[in-house]
Design a protein around this nucleic acid. Structure first.
Lengths: 214, 214
DNA sequence: CGGCCACTTGTCCACCAGGACAATAGGCAA
DNA sequence: TTGCCTATTGTCCTGGTGGACAAGTGGCCG
């Protein structure tokens, strides 16, 4: 069972949180307090309100002080920009401090599976905003693929900035296999390493990409 | 208890899915089949593979035919663009067809609480893509200091695909100094390595580049 | 002058990336 | 059946990468 540690300055929400995780612990979070490093694997719930100026910096320092612990931010005044900021700072989740117990438990489950929790609203905003300027990929027109399907997946992941380890996890194969595919891709596209591959693919117009990627 | 209906043309994954939801139902999904409208409140799991040309259209028609049902897309060859497309088309979740039972149950839990399920990879891409554009400007934090002249030169070289050794030769400095500049650039732009730096810079519009590069 | 900043270089070290040898299994076509 | 292709994994090894300690120089500003 995972440990749940709630970092907060106020106690108003503790009863509700406790209904979600009866075995929870609460700590006041002062700047110095982060050095009481919880054991790796614990889940840290960071409560922020209007008094916290920049939660993202707080998240960063906490994550640095407690490697291996996921941090979820509970905001008194949830706001998309704030959520975006803390998630970029490395938080694994962002939601309102008033979230009901069921939601908290869901967040825990999602994070336990390596996911990130983003509220529906923020996610929707992300989707539309990205969809607008990422454009529709010309699919269904896949032809003349010079790369095999598997090679394409790996190439795409590299073009997105992933490491071999990440790709391996994502495709559920070993790192060795990723390397094998990548070596093949390098040879086919005549690039010397992943950096040039990424530059090459990202610099290509979408139509050209789908001609070489499956 | 919610009903789980798996729409698929192949049966290979049914055993795994059944371990997640013993009471699941399976239906072949043909175009005409969508008129067998499942009762509202059911969760539809749509299995797509390479043969499905545009899953987003399929999702849209299914959602139109079955209002009140959330649709989760299980892809044989998951990839970010496809995920983006189906989510914009109204899907409530997107993951690989090989997802283990625990993940499927998590997805169900998330959706039951009004959330959308997005894999960590896709979400990460959403965050970096959007965060670099909207998130920055909205959130003051004008500490996006431009890079120093020397740092800019190094950053530009990396964005062009150069190695440390090449940059060192070009700038007539030691490789060590190149590393020093690069570490600084990584910290300022909040990227973890040269690959993501290159992607970041190459993805930026020209005018945005000149704001951070000298 | 003292402090700050940009630029420079050093060593040590853990980790990642790719190439060079491999090998095995399944699908598919001649 | 034989051969080719794709996907998969193995070990060994070299070189590239980036962080963690530092530390020395020169310029500019209050």
């Amino acid at each position: 069972m995972k440990r749940h540690i709630f970092l907060t300055r106020r106690e108003v929400h503790l009863p509700e949180w406790r209904t979600a995780f009866p075995a929870m612990e609460a700590r006041p979070h002062a700047a110095a307090d982060e050095r009481l490093a919880p054991p790796g694997g614990a889940l840290l719930w960071l409560h922020v309100d209007n008094n916290v100026k920049n939660p993202e910096a707080l998240v960063e320092s906490i994550r640095k002080a407690t490697p291996g612990c996921a941090v979820v931010v509970l905001s008194n005044v949830p706001h998309d920009d704030e959520g975006l900021a803390v998630l970029e700072a490395g938080a694994a989740g962002y939601t309102g401090a008033l979230a009901v117990a069921a939601v908290l438990r869901n967040i825990e489950a999602v994070i336990a599976n390596g996911g990130l929790w983003v509220g529906p609203d923020l996610l929707q905003r992300l989707l539309v905003a990205l969809g607008r300027h990422a454009g529709r990929s010309a699919r269904g027109a896949a032809r003349l693929d010079r790369l095999s399907p598997r090679e394409s997946e790996v190439a795409r992941a590299v073009a997105a900035g992933a490491t071999n380890k990440e790709i391996a996890r994502k495709l559920a194969i070993t790192e060795r296999t990723v390397k094998a595919h990548l070596s093949q891709v390098f040879a086919i596209l005549k690039v010397r390493d992943r950096l040039q591959l990424a530059i090459y693919l990202n610099g290509l117009p979408k139509e050209a990409q789908s001609r070489i990627l499956h």
